[in-house]
Simulated assay, not measured.
Amino acid sequence: MNPNDVTMRPITGREELDLFCRLSYALNGEFPEDLARARRRPEWMWVALRGDRLLARAAWWTRPGNDTPHLLDVLDVDDGLPAHERVEVGERLLRTAAAAVLPDGAPRPEYTRFVPPGWRDDPATARPVRDRMTILERAGARLFVERLRLEWRPGTAVPGPSGRLAFRPVQDSGELLTLMAAVLEGTLDAHSREDLTRMSPREAAAAQYEEELARYPSPREWWRIATLPDGEPVGFVIPAHNTYNPVIAYIAVLPGHRGRGHVDDILAEGTRVLAAQDVPRIRASTDLGNVPMAAAFRRAGYVDFEREINMTWD
């Protein structure tokens, strides 16, 4: 590939979304609203062009109100290019865009990509996924975790209360933070485990609460504490809307109450809360290696509809 015949630049604005979307991906339909709500910025959406042909693209996403990118969630190349050129142009674009977009010395945002559940088994899906992972690896990233994305659909039966547990709203953020810190003991979640290498359980809980849960636009009245009949907490569930979908944002059982099937009752309650809102779907995710949680979602009628690849920089 002749580097002199490739132009790399950010898009000029919404008027170039059609250009940016010439490469297909599941998130394409979200870009207009993301721009309108300041989750994306044109200067964070880069393209590599040869004439008017789109060879590659990269884009970052953030939460509203943030001034810096939070995730690298778009990295695509023209899959019709020769193999060496796909990787070369993708790596060049990523390095060029990152140098312009990311603050000097700041940690690099995590990379995330949605892929089909059986992506390894189908050459037609495996090659594009591996191309993008190779680009990231050549730019210094490594695979961090693969996650299951699950979905409950209307018409799926929701079990009624078993009577073993009672449910009540969260009293205040302090109560929830105490429970969030407690459930980190023995966690199988890769992101939580990594957080605990850098901060205390209380600090990790506070960071997740402030950066994620507190930002949801849905009512906090949906959040539920699960208790024994005598009022002792055994876990909690956070049904929410993350501005894209209704989600089970967080579900957990306290260490002393694990292994007794309580997760099924807690998940059923969270599902009932959202199903009562007449939602078109409920989404959730868990690490591929978190076998007990994945099994609980499947028992509740959630189906695997996608995987998520997370890659990070050391």
Rank of each mutant, 00 (worst) to 15 (best):
A97Q: 11
G90D: 06
V129R: 09
L19R: 05
N28L: 08
A240F: 00
V183E: 11
G80Q: 08
S173W: 02
P280I: 00
L188K: 14
E212N: 05
M8F: 03
P229K: 07
G155V: 01
L102H: 07
S285I: 00
Y216H: 13
F31H: 15
L93C: 14
R120K: 11
D278W: 03
V115P: 01
A240Q: 06
L27E: 13
D304G: 02
Q208K: 10
W60A: 09
T134G: 08
A300W: 03
R41F: 08
D131G: 03
E15T: 09
A182M: 09
E308R: 09
D195S: 12
A139W: 02
R127G: 07
G160E: 14
E211N: 11
R142E: 14
A124K: 13
T243N: 07
T68Q: 09
F31L: 15
M45Q: 12
D78M: 02
V47P: 09
P255L: 12
M45P: 00
A276K: 11
R57K: 11
N290L: 01
P255D: 14
R120G: 01
E91G: 08
V101S: 08
M311G: 11
S192N: 12
L81E: 01
P169S: 14
A275I: 09
I282P: 04
D131Y: 07
A182G: 02
E15Q: 14
E137L: 05
M199N: 06
E194C: 05
P229M: 10
R41K: 13
Y209F: 15
E16K: 03
I225N: 06
E146P: 09
L143G: 05
R220N: 13
F20R: 06
A59C: 06
R272A: 03
W60S: 03
W223K: 00
A294Y: 00
A99L: 07
